[in-house]
């Protein structure tokens, strides 16, 4: 048996971990740089502010930006109250019972369902059965289901992390449970909840399979939640698979990546501000 000198093995482990980290970071940097290099040349004001011409071979992506924002807002407007409400109920209003375990297990299962299956489900349920058609609403509902487990889980974790003694203080001052939840627990959990929402926004923006089945791929700018709309990710997918307009596809991808990076940076910055304010 070869026995490594402890100091040496420490060094070795450190070296391996550092290289793995470097690899991860460089893959990320490579992808971002590659997409930006290819996409930035087309990404001008014109591209961002006009509609598509000739199925996207020319023109811009304005309608798809609108659809993406629209669908994401609808999805989160539905998923946030549902998810945060569920998290509050599970953590503050019930004790750990068989029922709460079933709810948690269901949420875990939901999180594991591939988005293309959710797309199919949304198509059958919202588009066909509820007769909502291919629309922003159908897409938003489907994405809401997709991100619900994330919002429940991150909110639950954030709520549990609020120190118990703050709840005790509020109760000891005569606060009802609901007052304690709204005035002590939720403010304390806010950074975590916002993180969960931002993660979800990122997933909504990047999602393709679940929305192509439910929101459709109309080229126009949607004017209501009952109109069909094509998100940026769907547009990119269609350009890349059905046309030879790779320049336009990269332009769209660059816009997507910049949007997601901006949202993540904003979320990060906001969380730090909230957390620093009182400590």
């Amino acid at each position: 048996m070869i026995r490594l000198d402890p100091a040496l093995s420490q060094k070795l482990v450190r070296w391996v971990l550092v290289s793995l980290t470097a690899l991860t970071v460089s893959i990320l940097v490579f992808i971002i740089t590659y997409v930006l290099l290819k996409g930035l040349p087309v990404l001008g004001w014109e591209f961002l502010s006009t509609g598509a011409v000739d199925a996207g071979r020319g023109g811009g992506i304005f309608p798809f930006i609108v659809s993406t924002v629209f669908i994401t807002v609808v999805a989160l407007a539905i998923a946030t109250p549902l998810g945060v409400g569920t998290a509050i109920y599970l953590t503050e209003y019930t004790r750990e019972t068989a029922a709460t375990r079933v709810v948690r297990f269901a949420a875990e299962c939901l999180a594991g369902i591939p988005s293309i299956i959710l797309g199919l489900f949304g198509f059958i349920t919202f588009v066909l059965f509820l007769k909502l058609g291919w629309s922003i609403l159908s897409g938003g509902l489907t994405l809401a289901i997709m991100v619900l487990p994330t919002i429940i889980r991150t909110s639950e974790e954030a709520i549990i992390a609020v120190p118990q003694n703050r709840r005790d203080v509020s109760t000891s001052l005569g606060g009802t449970r609901w007052q304690t939840v709204t005035r002590v627990v939720l403010p304390g959990a806010l950074p975590g909840i916002v993180t969960g929402i931002m993660l979800s926004v990122g997933r909504c923006i990047g999602e393709t399979a679940a929305v192509i089945f439910t929101a459709g791929s109309a080229l126009g700018t949607p004017t209501s939640i009952f109109a069909s709309g094509r998100t940026l990710a769907v547009h990119f997918y269609i350009l890349a698979t059905e046309t030879d307009a790779f320049g336009m596809a990269y332009g769209t991808a660059a816009a997507l990546i910049i949007a997601i990076l901006t949202i993540n940076t904003l979320a990060y910055w906001m969380m730090h501000r909230i957390m620093r304010k009182y400590s």
Partner: peptide, 16 residues
């Protein structure tokens, strides 16, 4: 009752 009977805990717990 808790308004009438106030409580101070062993570790100070200022709210943030």
């Amino acid at each position: 009752l808790r308004r009438r009977v106030g409580m101070v805990f062993d570790v100070p717990v200022p709210l943030p």
